[in-house]
């Protein structure tokens, strides 16, 4: 066990510390300095990379599932939408706000916000289906003032009437272009499940005599990876499109 000893101070040091304490006490009595923000009337200015509520743009999403794969809390589920595509949904009861999903999205379909104060009545409500991820959640806001903490030896509260933007613009990610390839043709059944699963008809299968010819058209393939996941023999894989030599 470690015992914490009272520090041994010289008399002069001790007197100085006592005087400091008395001075601080007197100062607080005359002009109190609080560092508490008066939420919800005041809004704290948050950094642009603050990790809050996540928004989703379905028109950008290519259903690659990367967000659901990367999510360390298993909070993202891919749901089948009416257009037969899979889109993410987030369970905020599980989400740990790491924003790995946003970072990993190759097409910037997921975006961060500075919203951190959504209220839910129960756990079920925290499950947020795709439809609800498209727009920010409804929050009745009363803020009039933005408060910013400035560190300058001491903490200084800088207040301004201008409200901080809740939806920071993020730079669009450089899209990683991928396409499907067969990595083990000698283990292929040639069952054609890939052909049927492909949303853009990039995979074709043709039977010629006692042979089946399979082909992936990389002009059409946009790397959604659905064939990779549906292949029963796991012979397909996504690879990055090789950089064109300059």
């Amino acid at each position: 066990m470690i015992k914490i000893k009272t520090p041994k101070l010289k008399t002069l040091e001790s007197i100085k510390l006592h005087l400091d304490a008395l001075f601080t006490g007197a100062k607080e009595a005359i002009k109190p300095g609080t560092i508490t923000i008066e939420y919800p009337r005041e809004r704290r200015k948050l950094p642009d990379n603050f990790r809050g509520y996540i928004l989703f743009s379905p028109e950008r999403c290519k259903s690659c599932w990367q967000c659901s794969f990367v999510c360390p809390a298993n909070a993202i589920k891919m749901e089948l939408a009416s257009n037969n595509r899979y889109y993410p949904s987030i369970d905020y009861a599980k989400c740990i706000f790491c924003h790995f999903c946003i970072d990993t999205c190759p097409v910037t379909a997921l975006k961060p916000t500075k919203i951190h104060d959504v209220v839910y009545k129960d756990l079920e409500e925290m499950y947020t289906p795709t439809e609800l991820m498209v727009k920010p959640p409804k929050i009745v806001r009363e803020e009039e003032v933005t408060v910013e903490y400035v560190m300058d030896g001491d903490i200084i509260l800088k207040k301004s009437k201008e409200l901080d933007e809740l939806f920071p613009e993020i730079e669009p990610h450089v899209e990683i272009k991928e396409h499907s390839v067969c990595i083990d043709p000698e283990s292929c059944i040639a069952c054609g499940i890939c052909e049927h699963s492909c949303p853009v008809e990039a995979i074709t299968r043709e039977t010629i005599g006692q042979e089946r010819h399979l082909r992936i058209d990389i002009e059409k393939c946009y790397g959604c990876g659905i064939c990779v996941r549906s292949c029963p023999m796991h012979v397909l894989k996504l690879v990055r499109i090789r950089e064109e030599k300059a």
Binding site: V181, C182, I183, D184, P185, C188, I189, A190, T207, Q210, E211, R212, H213, L214, R215, I216, D217, I218, K237, V239
Partner: peptide
């Protein structure tokens, strides 16, 4: 691994 875009399977 081989990476191929065209392959044949005997049936």
């Amino acid at each position: 691994a081989v990476e191929t875009l065209e392959w044949k399977v005997r049936i």
